[in-house]
């Protein structure tokens, strides 16, 4: 699967952009937190697309963001 690029995203409407990013992020997040992958992906999709693209290219920043989101989710559910 070819990497998602900013120009590919720019060609799509916002709704499609978020869907494209979600479809790419979900499997990566599922590897880290299979049970809450849908919730975490939904949380991260609210971040702006340039940061989401960066997270797709950099596993460390994705991992850091995912752990942050898990903490927020747990606090929210408490």
């Amino acid at each position: 699967q070819e990497p998602l690029t900013a120009s590919m995203l720019a060609a799509a409407p916002l709704k499609e952009q978020k869907q494209l990013l979600g479809e790419r992020l979900y499997p990566l997040i599922q590897m880290l937190h299979p049970v809450v992958a849908g919730k975490i992906t939904g949380m991260l999709l609210e971040i702006d697309n340039s940061e989401l693209l960066h997270m797709l290219e950099s596993p460390e920043s994705l991992h850091a963001k995912v752990e942050e989101a898990v903490a927020v989710l747990q606090a929210h559910q408490a």
Binding site: L14, K15, G22, Y26, G38, K39, T41, G42, L45
Partner: peptide
């Protein structure tokens, strides 16, 4: 109050519902 619909869950192949929050 806690918004029980948050976060807008993402399901592969299903249009994501979180757009209205942006």
């Amino acid at each position: 109050g806690t918004n029980v619909n948050w976060p807008p869950e993402f399901c592969p192949g299903v249009p994501w519902k979180g757009l209205q929050n942006i």
